[in-house]
Design a protein around this nucleic acid. Sequence first.
DNA 1: AATGAATGAGGGTTCATTCAT
DNA 2: GATGAATGAACCCTCATTCAT
Lengths: 205, 205, 205, 205
Amino acid sequence: MGKIEINKKQKREALFNAAFDLFTTRGIARTTINDIVKSSGVAKGTFYLYFKDKYDIRNKLIAHKASRIFYIADEALKNSGITDFTNKILFLANNIIDQFVMDKSLLNFISKNLSWGIFKNELITTSNDYDIDFYNIYSIFENSPRKFKNPEVLLFMIIELVSSTCYSSILYDEPVNIEKLKPFLYDAIRQLIRSQEIEQQAENI
Amino acid sequence: MGKIEINKKQKREALFNAAFDLFTTRGIARTTINDIVKSSGVAKGTFYLYFKDKYDIRNKLIAHKASRIFYIADEALKNSGITDFTNKILFLANNIIDQFVMDKSLLNFISKNLSWGIFKNELITTSNDYDIDFYNIYSIFENSPRKFKNPEVLLFMIIELVSSTCYSSILYDEPVNIEKLKPFLYDAIRQLIRSQEIEQQAENI
Amino acid sequence: MGKIEINKKQKREALFNAAFDLFTTRGIARTTINDIVKSSGVAKGTFYLYFKDKYDIRNKLIAHKASRIFYIADEALKNSGITDFTNKILFLANNIIDQFVMDKSLLNFISKNLSWGIFKNELITTSNDYDIDFYNIYSIFENSPRKFKNPEVLLFMIIELVSSTCYSSILYDEPVNIEKLKPFLYDAIRQLIRSQEIEQQAENI
Amino acid sequence: MGKIEINKKQKREALFNAAFDLFTTRGIARTTINDIVKSSGVAKGTFYLYFKDKYDIRNKLIAHKASRIFYIADEALKNSGITDFTNKILFLANNIIDQFVMDKSLLNFISKNLSWGIFKNELITTSNDYDIDFYNIYSIFENSPRKFKNPEVLLFMIIELVSSTCYSSILYDEPVNIEKLKPFLYDAIRQLIRSQEIEQQAENI
DNA sequence: AATGAATGAGGGTTCATTCAT
DNA sequence: GATGAATGAACCCTCATTCAT
């Protein structure tokens, strides 16, 4: 990679960082391209060499940040030695929640955009340079002997329940703070999993 | 009520209707106050007699529409003769989902804003002229002999689960369409309720 | 004077008071007719029954306030028993300066408008209901045996010198505060008078 | 200086000229930014690259024009060979008055703003690119053997007297026209100077 | 005479985008 | 590739004035 290539990467990175800072502090609507370029130290015209407009950089940021969260959670899971499916899900949920607790502005930024549809969409339309493939999250099912009526729906419901309840709990302590919510939420997840489980024949015995 | 009062109500109503149409078709960000006044046939200055800015009318619209949905569901529940708590919840959820299915633009408009925090906030800061009091929704617990660890958290989780899963299912059929989702969702709700229930003494026997 | 007449006078008075308060605190440019009527408790349309526009009420206010200042100074002069012409002028100047020191917002409001041209103009075009006739200020010359080359120019120069130097001295202490300025200013006035005086024959001796 | 720099200077100049024309013909209050940019042939947004708002360009114009007047008067004084302090002051006053007589719109524009406080303020806060340093006006005292009680106050009173009397005399011929006023005014100035002079010992003899 | 809701022209300001350098 | 001055459409909002009540 030549000097030019490095320079280009740095510019793009600078724009990304500045945009994220501004989006999370002022909000997207109140952030202008002028703000972004001023804050990242590049010229205004340069922005358009890398991104189409404000929403382009926003979308790429969301995918970037969201995939990072899953990646971190997944790495931690691998190192945990947990084998039981339910425990894996709970571990992931807990890890992600803790990441959000530690970076509330991140939660605020991606929460509303981490829903299923946009999630899928973004991952497909985004170049792979900066984002990890999400769908290996399904691999969580692969090594488990347990079977579920509709694994995708199950995952969908868990993700939606976690992400939407976390939002108001972490950011506004409503209706209760996140630590008080956790036991109820994890109980709820356990019940969700149980409600979809198909009882297996005890064939192994 | 004099002629003037009637006229004022009509003006406000016209602005409300025009704004809702535009917000749901073009989105809030792409709707200007100019659009709203042109579409409602009043002068630009008139807008500012009734609303502070675009976000003011948006918030009032959300509260207005959201309370209407609950009101309709609640009325239907009263006429249904259902007495069991779980069934009441399922009836309400189903009724609201059906309302959203019939008016997808409404879902798109309020879904992201129907979360707990804003919900509470809006109801408090909005005058009662146009909105029904929400908190009688707690009355659903009052007449039930069943007891729950934390009723508010229970309700919170159910609302968040329903609203967030509905969004992508109804609007994008993701991961499955709403009719396929319903059985899983209602099962999930039943499990949520069960997971929080405190067993009562069989005192009646 | 019937009830209606009294009511009218009160409305006009209320508008005057409110306008003066607002003009002196926010400035004329930042005061709207809306502000004035809101602050005086009358309806917006009523404003136009009494005044043509914002500048009409401003002009009438200036004449009103300015004439009051001269009236107060003149009354004090009458009670002082001073007979010498130069001392009379100095007494008036000092009294007016002290009025301004005690009400700086008043100074700020009328200072720039108390100049000769507008002064004369306003007094002529304003109804006499609210304003005292200014020109009796010339009476100061009448009873004096001393003669001046051009009494009007003399008065003009004194008024302009006093009003323009007071402005920055009282409001900004520039170049010195008013108490330090006074001896220089009064010396200057004495010299001005002397420079225009026509020596009289010592006929009385 | 590159092409861009030249272009920038031209743009700023064009805005200055257009604004001055409009301010002096229509008045500041009746001049809009729209008028200025239309008249100077630049785009509306360009205005905001150079000035904060209408009052910013006004203030910069005042300082610009005022310093020019003093500069012209000072240059003429240097070429006059006048050495006596009183005559220097009279020369300057007369020169400035004549400038105003020849450009009444200029007088109207800056007269009300040429007062001591704003004067000082503007000179300090304005960049030196466009304005001459005023304070060498004090140099008028330096080479004179004559001493005054308070030179700054003396200068202040002279400036205020001249500027405020000129305003109504030149523009409105009130109370007399400027040519009639001049002898009285110059007499007055002589008296002002005399009233502050500290008599020196006749040491040179 | 008094009201105040309604008007809408027109103000200031922003900002995504372009393009000559 | 990089720059940043220039653009001008489009925005929000104000507010003097009117007029039906």
